[in-house]
């Protein structure tokens, strides 16, 4: 069975005829070619597939594309600022070495972005708690915590459009 779904992704309207069972992550990666969102598990534990659904962090492996008709999705490809500058969270990850292999990073950045929207000045404990649904196998997390703190301390970061 196929269903037509219309989803706004990174500000652009998309519309596709999809199988009812198509996961949002596969819609993003395979229908739209937005491969920055990754898959790391099949039990919604790892958070590599985290995107923003109407501003809230969700795991796109546990959302059906057909289920979010007329919703707004932001993926890592839409995380940068309008002028092309990295977002404060992206820049924080770079400044604080919050990534190594980079596979969990898009999900981490989206989950951190959602956290800072809700709580612009989180403590270390609040950051660790907020990111407990996102697994990283490389960093040991301290530098991810530092990256989020960097973003909290530099909310107006801009590189003047330099990417």
């Amino acid at each position: 069975m196929t269903i037509r779904t219309s989803i706004t992704v990174n500000g652009k309207d998309t519309s596709r005829e999809v199988e009812a069972r198509t996961l949002l992550v596969h819609y993003l990666r395979e229908e739209l070619g937005l491969t920055g969102t990754h898959v790391g598990c099949d039990t919604s534990n790892c958070g590599a597939c985290t995107v923003l659904l109407d501003g809230e962090a969700v795991k796109s492996c546990t959302v059906f594309a057909a289920q979010i008709h007329d919703c707004n999705i932001t993926t890592i490809e839409g995380a940068a600022q309008a002028d092309g500058s990295f977002s404060p969270v992206q820049e924080g990850f770079r400044q604080e070495h919050g990534l190594q292999c980079g596979y969990c990073t898009p999900g981490m950045i989206m989950a951190s972005t959602a956290l800072l929207t809700e709580n612009p000045n989180p403590t270390e404990e609040e950051i660790r708690h907020a990111l407990e649904g996102n697994l990283c196998r490389c960093t040991g997390y301290e530098m991810i915590v530092n990256a989020v703190r960097w973003a909290a301390e530099n909310p107006n970061f801009t590189s003047g459009g330099a990417k």
């Binding site: 990666r29 395979e30 070619g33 937005l34 491969t35 920055g36 969102t37 990754h38 898959v39 993926t75 890592i76 490809e77 995380a79 940068a80 990295f86 992206q90 990850f93 770079r94 400044q95 070495h97 990534l99 980079g102 596979y103 990073t105 898009p106 950045i109 990417k163």
Partner: peptide, 20 residues
């Protein structure tokens, strides 16, 4: 700071599953 990061923090990394 790492040369690797600009691609990886913007979703422009290229892992095998990204190839189609």
């Amino acid at each position: 700071l790492r040369k690797e990061d600009p691609n990886l923090i913007t979703g422009n990394g290229q892992y095998v599953d990204d190839l189609q």
